[in-house]
Structures are given as C-alpha cells and as structure tokens.
Deep mutational scan, measured.
Amino acid sequence: MQGVVKVNSALNMRSGPGSNYGVIGTLRNNDKVEIIKEVDGWYEIRFNGKVGSASKSYITIVN
C-alpha cells in the first residue's frame, strides 16, 4: 500500500510506533512512502530504504 505525507513542514520518522521512540529520519510534504502495516495509530513505513514509523494522521493512502 502506498501513502503520501501531508504536513506543513516536516514529519519525524521514528524507530517505533510512538513519540517516545528515537527519530531516524524526516519526511517532507508530498513524500511518497510504502505502508507496511498499522500499529496503534501509527504506520510502519518504508522510505528511502529505511523502515520506521510515522503517525497515520499525516499520511494519506493512495491507490
């Protein structure tokens, strides 16, 4: 499943599904990500070869 980031500035990509996990990357508006699965309001995603988590509130699913 594919998604597109929708933010005003930037979205942190984290090492796990929650804001208490470390930041491993930064996503910008309109970045395209691969959604692997949903976990507690977060998506596990793949972006630029990295796997991490980002809040699903800022990612829109595209077909």
Results as ranks from 00 to 15, higher is better:
residue 5 V to M: 03
residue 52 G to W: 01
residue 31 D to N: 05
residue 24 I to C: 07
residue 38 E to N: 04
residue 6 K to D: 05
residue 59 I to D: 03
residue 52 G to P: 01
residue 22 G to D: 15
residue 57 S to T: 12
residue 6 K to V: 12
residue 41 G to S: 07
residue 28 R to D: 07
residue 42 W to G: 01
residue 14 R to W: 08
residue 60 T to K: 13
residue 42 W to C: 04
residue 63 N to R: 11
residue 49 G to A: 05
residue 3 G to V: 05
residue 47 F to N: 02
residue 33 V to W: 02
residue 8 N to T: 13
residue 28 R to W: 07
residue 41 G to L: 06
residue 13 M to L: 13
residue 37 K to N: 12
residue 52 G to A: 07
residue 18 G to Q: 01
residue 51 V to R: 09
residue 4 V to L: 11
residue 6 K to Q: 12
residue 16 G to C: 07
residue 34 E to R: 06
residue 30 N to V: 02
residue 31 D to S: 07
residue 10 A to V: 15
residue 16 G to L: 03
residue 25 G to P: 02
residue 2 Q to K: 11
residue 31 D to A: 07
residue 31 D to Y: 04
residue 63 N to V: 13
residue 54 A to I: 15
residue 9 S to A: 12
residue 22 G to Y: 07
residue 18 G to P: 00
residue 61 I to F: 05
residue 58 Y to F: 14
residue 63 N to E: 13
residue 38 E to A: 07
residue 19 S to V: 14
residue 22 G to I: 12
residue 32 K to M: 14
residue 36 I to E: 02
residue 19 S to K: 14
residue 32 K to D: 04
residue 13 M to Q: 03
residue 46 R to I: 14
residue 2 Q to A: 11
residue 3 G to M: 04
residue 5 V to K: 02
residue 3 G to Q: 02
residue 21 Y to G: 07
residue 43 Y to A: 00
residue 61 I to D: 04
residue 38 E to I: 08
residue 53 S to H: 15
residue 39 V to R: 08
residue 23 V to K: 07
residue 15 S to L: 09
residue 40 D to F: 08
residue 63 N to D: 13
residue 32 K to A: 10
residue 51 V to C: 09
residue 50 K to Q: 13
residue 48 N to M: 12
residue 25 G to V: 08
residue 5 V to R: 01
residue 24 I to M: 05
residue 33 V to F: 05
residue 13 M to S: 03
residue 61 I to H: 05
residue 59 I to Y: 00
residue 47 F to K: 03
residue 37 K to P: 01
residue 45 I to M: 02
residue 28 R to G: 08
residue 51 V to H: 08
residue 41 G to M: 07
residue 44 E to M: 14
residue 31 D to E: 08
residue 3 G to I: 05
residue 51 V to I: 13
residue 20 N to D: 13
residue 11 L to N: 04
residue 31 D to T: 08
residue 51 V to S: 09
residue 12 N to K: 13
residue 47 F to Y: 10
residue 33 V to L: 04
residue 2 Q to T: 13
residue 43 Y to R: 00
residue 38 E to H: 05
residue 27 L to S: 01
residue 15 S to P: 01
residue 4 V to E: 06
residue 42 W to T: 00
residue 15 S to D: 10
residue 53 S to T: 10
residue 17 P to Y: 01
residue 23 V to G: 02
residue 40 D to R: 08
residue 39 V to E: 10
residue 42 W to R: 01
residue 56 K to E: 06
residue 27 L to N: 01
residue 29 N to Y: 09
residue 9 S to F: 12
residue 47 F to C: 04
residue 12 N to E: 15
residue 44 E to D: 06
residue 41 G to E: 10
residue 3 G to T: 02
residue 8 N to A: 12
residue 58 Y to L: 09
residue 24 I to Q: 02
residue 56 K to L: 06
residue 6 K to T: 12
residue 8 N to W: 05
residue 40 D to C: 10
residue 59 I to R: 00
residue 1 M to K: 12
residue 31 D to V: 06
residue 6 K to E: 07
residue 43 Y to T: 00
residue 48 N to L: 09
residue 20 N to H: 14
residue 4 V to K: 07
residue 47 F to A: 08
residue 33 V to M: 03
residue 8 N to P: 10
residue 45 I to C: 03
residue 50 K to A: 10
residue 9 S to H: 14
residue 47 F to P: 01
residue 12 N to G: 11
residue 60 T to Q: 14
residue 17 P to C: 08
residue 44 E to R: 05
residue 50 K to F: 10
residue 10 A to L: 14
residue 44 E to F: 10
residue 20 N to M: 10
residue 48 N to R: 11
residue 28 R to T: 09
residue 53 S to E: 03
residue 22 G to R: 12
residue 51 V to G: 05
residue 24 I to W: 00
residue 58 Y to E: 11
residue 36 I to A: 02
residue 18 G to L: 01
residue 7 V to E: 03
residue 44 E to W: 14
residue 18 G to A: 03
residue 42 W to Q: 01
residue 11 L to S: 05
residue 28 R to Y: 13
residue 12 N to C: 14
residue 39 V to D: 07
